[in-house]
């Protein structure tokens, strides 16, 4: 497709509230996306990576991705995006990671615990990690967040507050010791994770 420049005129908008162009349709990543899987990207602290010299609390984020039958999704792409330990996105920390789930549906990231992120006004969001899931059978990504159990700011976090209390737990990782935090992600059915429209 080539976008003709006249499509950008006001007449081409099809209505006042329509942007001149329309976002390209999403399509599934399919089962063979591993051609762009680089397992080292799941280790945000890798010695030859951009964060090797950045100080902070080292943590492991782990869990499983399961389907409506509770069966593992062995071909999902999990991506994370997070702030640095000071809660900033504009520092030197490169808060992006990608991990392929294994045959048991497991993912695992090594990273630094993010700080509280500034929200509207003088408020702060609780420390959190943005999570995107791509997979065969997902025609567009599912977006969610991972929060940390026990954080005082969880009580007033604007996103957690938008989630019905009985489902908030699906976004809150639990400590497993040695800096590991677990969040299992069920795509459908009992204990279905909360997914966000952003």
């Amino acid at each position: 497709m080539s976008l003709a420049s006249d499509d950008r005129s006001a007449e081409g908008r099809g209505g006042l509230n329509r942007p001149p162009l329309q976002a390209t349709a999403s399509q599934t990543a399919g089962p063979y996306w591993h051609l762009i899987d680089f397992p080292e990207w799941a280790d945000l602290l890798r010695s030859n990576g951009p964060n090797a010299a950045i100080a902070g609390e080292r943590i492991t984020l782990l869990g499983t991705v399961t389907d409506g039958d509770g069966a593992p999704c062995p071909d999902a792409m999990v991506e994370i995006w997070q702030a640095d330990p000071e809660g900033r996105y504009d520092g030197d920390f490169h808060g992006f990671g990608r991990c392929a789930t294994d045959q048991a549906g497991r993912f695992r990231f090594l990273t630094l615990k993010p700080g509280a992120v500034r929200a509207e006004g003088n408020a702060f969001q609780a420390p959190h990690v943005v999570v995107s899931l791509f997979a065969r059978g997902l025609l567009k990504q599912l977006v969610t967040r991972l929060y940390f159990a026990g954080e005082p700011l969880n009580e007033q976090d604007p996103v957690l507050s938008a989630v019905p209390p009985d489902r908030r737990g699906t976004l809150i990782a639990r400590p497993e010791g040695d800096g590991a935090w677990r969040l299992d992600m069920r795509l459908q059915g009992e204990g279905e994770m909360v997914f966000l429209e952003i």
Partner: peptide, 13 residues
């Protein structure tokens, strides 16, 4: 998509 789509609506933030 049958077993992999959420049945609950997304929550707009």
């Amino acid at each position: 998509t049958h077993k992999r789509h959420p049945k609950q609506p997304l929550i707009r933030i």
